[in-house]
Design a protein around this nucleic acid. Sequence first.
DNA 1: GCTGATTTCGCAATCGCCTTGCGCACCTCC
DNA 2: GGAGGTGCGCAAGGCGATTGCGAAATCAGC
Lengths: 160, 160
Amino acid sequence: MVDNCAMDRIDLHIVRELQNDGRLSNQELAQRVGLSPSPCLRRVRQLEQDGVIQGYRAIIDPEAVGRGFEVLVSVEVRRDRETVEAFEEALQDVPDVIEAYRLFGSPGCLLRIAVADLAAYERLWIERLTTLTGVTEVNSQIIMKRIKEPKGMPVDVRGA
Amino acid sequence: MVDNCAMDRIDLHIVRELQNDGRLSNQELAQRVGLSPSPCLRRVRQLEQDGVIQGYRAIIDPEAVGRGFEVLVSVEVRRDRETVEAFEEALQDVPDVIEAYRLFGSPGCLLRIAVADLAAYERLWIERLTTLTGVTEVNSQIIMKRIKEPKGMPVDVRGA
DNA sequence: GCTGATTTCGCAATCGCCTTGCGCACCTCC
DNA sequence: GGAGGTGCGCAAGGCGATTGCGAAATCAGC
């Protein structure tokens, strides 16, 4: 996690390739970045240890696991430290909340929620969202379409 | 991609484990879901082919690749088909836009953007966001804190 | 500019895992 | 009760991961 920012262009290239396909074999990866397998693997291990690569994840079709209905929820919370901290802590225990951000300005907080369908969302809304303490306003917006599939951060490799 | 929804609890378990750690060895995975390696691998391949597992990705620290500054941008676009389609198409060519949703109601569109710092965002805003055709309103909100790290979809495995 | 120290590479060998073909068990439908 | 189909476990072959070591490159200091 220490910011050992000695990332040269090969490291960036490795990061980019692994972000595109986290299951690349070390051999294939080495070939793509122009290295032999052993130093390539050593670099990957170093990147993992430095926290640059935080993990690997399979990308799942939300529909297939019964979470094809997505909602963006703006939440306003009373702005004192206790309330905010309790609210954010409580969010951790709601698995349907996929993403959550605290913002400057208004709304103070934005959630992305994924559930099975409208009925499931109604249940979540009435049972878990409106009951959170300190919440003064909840505004739900159904997602019509995902315009851009999340593909991770773009990584600029100078000269590659 | 065809909805071969014969996902039993073992498949759900596989999906959950691979979402947690996309680089699990097949042996380890098989052991966790209570199978021997060969049928386990066959199931994984099937899930990939059915589009349930859409891919694998390394999770990268945004800071490490110079994208530690994140902004949520509400965009309003003129609501005719031509404009909307052109706008959404144009978004694909802006790599700094990490996520994009089209919403019901207002705002009509929400973007998540990741750049290096405020200066980089100012440049992006003036050069690429305000110049998009049909855009009638752009409202930027800087993200103070990521409350919940994206960990993918929760997968309920009945009885596991 | 040369030299020593350090870093990083490539090679080779070992080990372990992936992968596939096959036989067996179970389940279903006649 | 028998026949077909589905899905499992076993075993073997091939291939990739992993590590130790020597060589090359890079860098600092003089």
